[in-house]
Every structure is written in C-alpha cells, then in structure tokens.
C-alpha cells in the first residue's frame, strides 16, 4: 500500500514536470500565433523572440501561458493531448481504419510475437546444445556473449532490403529482426539456467542412475525456469524494439514504426507521442503477461517466490 502511494507520487511528479516543461517548449509557437492573430507580443519580431530564449519569453508574456497546453502542433504536447489522441485513435476509430492505433499495433504485435517465438525456440535449442556438448560450449558460447555487446540492430535495414530483393516481404523480415534480437538474451539466460542445479542435485540424480535425458527433463529444465523467464522478459521487449525499427526502412506502411516515421515527416508530434505511448503500453502488457505466466508456472512447480 505504501509502495503504491510512493509510485503514485513519483508518477504524479513526472507528469507535473511534463506539464511545466510544456511552457518553455511551446511558448514561442504560441507567441508567433498570437502575433499573427493581432495580439501585442513582447518583443515584437520573430527574430528578437528567437534570440531572447524561452525563459525570457515566458517572463515577458505571462498572458500566453494558458495557451501552451492546447497548441495544435506543439513541440511538446501536454499529457492530456496525448491521452485524448490515444483515446480517439484506439477506442473511437474503427479497428480496420488506417488511423487506428489498434490496427497499427496489431501489425507490430504480430511481427513481434512471431519473431519472439522463432528467437526463443532457436535460443532454447542452442542453449540445450551448449549445455550438453562441450565443443558447442567452447566454440559458440563466447560468441553468443560477445554478440550481446554489439548493436546488432544496425543489421535491420539490410535484412529488410535483402529479403525484399529475394522476394520475401511483409511480416517475415520484421519477425526475423525481432527474432535475432531476442535470440541471444535467451541463449545466455537459458544456459545459465540449465547449469543452475548444483553438484549435490546432479550427484543425486546420478545415484538414481538417471540418464542424460531424465536429468534434463527432471532437473535441468525445471530449475532453469526462473532464468528463462528473466531473459524472456528482456527478449520480448527487445523483439518489440526490433519490430518497430524493422518498420522504419520499408518506407513505413503500417505499424508503430510507420506511425513514428510518418509523424516525424509531417511534424505531427501528438501522433508520435501517442504511437510511442501505445508501444510502451504494449511492451508493458507483454512483459506483465509473461510475469503472470511465470508466477502461475512457478506456483504449479511448487517454487515459492
């Protein structure tokens, strides 16, 4: 309960800072519009206003402050503008409409989930191989660790274009980018998890004369679950980033990445912010969903958390 109150305070603080930041960010646009509408603005010319700086403008023209939160195309939209845009583009628009964020979200989500499934599946397979084969452990594992320090997302535009040139387009290229972003965290986490049983437990299974497969299914796999879920949560967030970035170079047809790009081309800041928040909400939902599955699974397994 106390935690809840603290979280609420912090969130309220962030929103408060956001509202305050709107004043210096938007004041120049408001004053330019006011001058065009015939109001007396201090200083009078746009050039003098640019030189004065945002804070000076606020002090000189306090009458305009009320308008900074309701500009049409602001540099920094106020939280309620973003919230209204989110509401209008998710709830009030039809899902099939090209302007509905649900439609764009579903495009990004399908690429994310497909890529996440591919990446996680391959990652778990590779981890199993690494744990059971000394050669793979010694030759592949160092590369898997090094690959975590590399911004592999730089490959994204190339994958899109190469796959396009051999005739693959649509969902799959984005899913591949999402897959390889989630692949390496899963490999590293899963190897750690499959190795987590200590000597006592491994020895116990040996005294039961359990073979490798039994050791895997009855000891290694169950004890790897907490590690697996920790890396799955990282992996799905990475997949979503991959899917969004994968939408950028294709010229932006649909998806959150397309909304971001189109918004930045046409200066539609409210649209960018709402796409950003929609992506954030989606990421939070996916991670929370994994958290629920984890809790359920661990409880069924009898792990007390």
């Amino acid at each position: 309960m106390k935690t809840f109150l603290s979280v609420l305070t912090v969130v309220a603080g962030i929103i408060g800072i956001w509202y305050l930041a709107c004043v210096p960010m938007n004041i120049k646009g408001v004053l330019d519009a006011a001058e065009r509408a015939g109001a007396v603005v201090e200083p009078a010319t746009p050039k003098a206003r640019r030189d004065l700086g945002a804070m000076g403008l606020v002090v000189n023209n306090s009458f305009a402050i009320a308008d900074v939160w309701s500009v049409d195309r602001p540099r920094l939209p106020a939280p309620h503008q973003v919230a209204i845009e989110l509401w209008e583009t998710t709830v009030e628009k039809k899902i099939t409409s090209k302007r509905s964020l649900i439609y764009h979200g579903q495009v990004t989500l399908s690429a994310t989930l497909l890529g996440f499934a591919i990446g996680t599946g391959l990652g778990i397979l590779l981890a199993v191989g690494i744990v059971h084969s000394k050669v793979m452990d010694m030759s592949v594992m160092p590369w898997a660790i090094v690959s975590q320090t590399i911004p592999i997302i730089a490959l994204a535009p190339m994958i899109i274009v190469v796959l396009y040139s051999i005739g693959v387009q649509g969902l799959l290229p984005k899913a591949i980018i999402a897959a390889y972003l989630s692949f390496f965290p899963v490999v590293v986490g899963m190897v750690k998890g499959l190795r987590s049983p200590d000597h006592m437990q491994v020895d116990l299974l040996k005294t039961y004369s359990a073979n490798t497969a039994q050791g895997f299914w009855k000891l290694r796999l169950p004890s790897s679950m907490p590690y697996l879920f920790a890396s799955l949560k990282i992996g799905i967030a990475a997949s979503l980033v991959g899917a969004i970035v994968g939408e950028l170079p294709t010229g932006a047809v649909a998806g959150f990445g397309a909304r971001l790009l189109a918004g930045s081309y046409y200066g539609q800041t409210v649209q960018i912010w709402s796409a950003l928040f929609a992506a954030a909400i989606l990421a939070a939902l996916l991670v929370a969903l994994l958290g629920l599955v984890e809790r359920f699974l661990l409880r069924r397994m009898g792990v007390t958390t």
């Binding site: 603290s6 979280v7 912090v10 969004i244 959150f256 971001l260 800041t269 950003l276």
Partner: peptide, 29 residues
C-alpha cells in the same frame, strides 16, 4: 525512502519500454 520505493518500480517499468522510439521527437528538438 518514500521516493526510492516509488521510483524503483517506475524505473524498472520504463527500462523495459521501447525508449528508442523517442528518437524522432528528440531529432525534431
């Protein structure tokens, strides 16, 4: 202590978000 208690969950939450999407906004600014 109060702030820390509130900030940790918020920070963990934000750390999992696709922050890279702020790029178009910041490029604009």
């Amino acid at each position: 202590d109060f702030l820390r208690r509130g900030l940790l969950p918020v920070g963990n939450f934000v750390a999992a978000l696709p922050i890279v999407g702020t790029a178009p906004i910041l490029v604009m600014w």
